[in-house]
């Protein structure tokens, strides 16, 4: 809908304060998109992918000639400029797609699940790039199923489930608002037996054969966790993942 590729069914949709149905072209001129599935053109080289894409924005050859090496440098693909797309790894392709989305120096950058299917190194590389772009002052709209990603990268998070807005705020505030500060995770079948004699101030949540005990009283929680003998328990601070699961419910939906 943001791209004007599927018509909205109702309501108002404005980008940069302009109605998308009326000003689609000028909105696209100032927007960059990284789609969920890479759609780089396999007929062209790395550098050509950027120059051809730039030409769709009617950017001059001269400005592209200086911009493309900069972008390749930024995503660390300078030495691959003349390579075919099929020779790039998944992480490299994603970085190139990110560079392509920046070719028109957009004000708004839309990232649709940018790290899905990437290995940890590639994911961290994308994250640091996103940080870098964020610092340069661009607005970034990022969708993700990956709560760690949202927590690391986002200033403002909106949790949407089945098309309904469940919560909105900064990651820190969302965690504060919806969750206790600490959680102990206990794994294994035996874990289920201990729920009966749980202190009242603790909140307990179950998922599969894992048990999550929440509390804001770190000291008491840890003391209690130590009293569990012969069980593997893991203590950590709560995060957006806990907020998400709390709001949307555990188990398969």
């Amino acid at each position: 809908m943001l791209l004007g590729q599927s018509p909205r069914s109702g309501g108002v949709l404005e980008i940069f304060g302009k109605d998308i149905n009326v000003h689609l072209k000028s909105i696209r001129q100032k927007t960059g998109i990284v789609p969920q599935a890479d759609n780089l053109d396999p007929d062209f080289t790395v550098a050509e992918n950027l120059s051809i894409y730039g030409s769709y924005f009617r950017l001059s050859r001269k400005s592209l000639a200086s911009r493309i090496p900069e972008l390749l440098e930024m995503v660390q693909l300078s030495d691959r400029a003349e390579c075919r797309i099929s020779t790039l790894s998944g992480g490299m392709q994603r970085r190139l797609t990110l560079a392509r989305a920046l070719v028109n120096d957009p004000k708004l950058l839309v990232l649709d699940e940018p790290t899905t299917g990437l290995d940890p190194q590639a994911r961290h590389m994308i994250w640091s790039l996103v940080h870098q772009i964020k610092r340069s002052g661009k607005t970034i709209l990022l969708t993700t199923h990956y709560m760690e990603e949202a927590e690391r990268l986002c200033d403002e998070v909106i949790i949407i489930d089945h098309g309904r807005l469940l919560a909105q705020g900064s990651p820190v505030n969302l965690i504060k608002e919806h969750c206790e500060t600490d959680v102990v995770e206990i794994r294994g079948e035996v874990a289920l037996a201990i729920t009966r004699d749980l202190p009242e101030s603790f909140r307990c949540d179950r998922s599969g054969d894992s048990l999550y005990i929440y509390s804001s009283d770190t000291f008491r929680l840890l003391e209690w966790a130590e009293s569990l003998q012969g069980l593997t328990s893991l203590h950590r601070k709560t995060g957006l993942e806990d907020v998400f699961l709390r709001l949307t419910g555990r188990g398969l939906r």
Binding site: L3, Q5, K25, S26, R28, Q29, T31, I33, P35, A37, N39, L40, D41, P42, Y53, Y56, F57, R58, R100, N104
Partner: peptide
Amino acid sequence: QQTYEAILATP
């Protein structure tokens, strides 16, 4: 290849 989808994200 979804090339057109990529092109349609531009003007």
